[in-house]
Amino acid sequence: MRNLTLTLCLFLSVFSSATFAASAIDTFEFESIEQEQVFHDLTKVLRCPKCQNQNISDSNAELAKDLRNKTYELVKEGKTQDEVVDYMVARFGNFVRYDPPITPATIFLWLGPLLFILFGFLVLYKQAKNKNRKEDELDSNEAIRLKKILKQETK
């Protein structure tokens, strides 16, 4: 049994790499350049749930094909980009979109770097302002020590 699962895994891994080797090229017909652009953008921001980390445009997997066809259908119906994304999210969950939604956890994607920048500049400002005084002190301390040493030497 273990052997069977192993062979299955091997098969699947070979299979999945085969699917990404050749990227998918479809020939959909559109009513306008704008519509083609909407479709094109959508296939780049929708993720294929079955595959490795690939959008549905790059993947040749069966499911990616289905999703492309569905996207094409919806775009042809005149759906906007957001509507199509919502349609997919309703079925496959947030995993399917490369643009993450805002949740209590994902908010840190934006907050984290922002807080770091604010904090960084605060420290920078304080250091540059503070340094002068502190360093002077140190310097005078060192100067005293230096004097002592010099004195000792002259003695």
Partner: peptide
Amino acid sequence: LPLVHKEIGLGSISIGEPF
């Protein structure tokens, strides 16, 4: 974050090119 997001029970998300 996708890893953490899933582990704390908020479900799977993807973070990719647009972000």
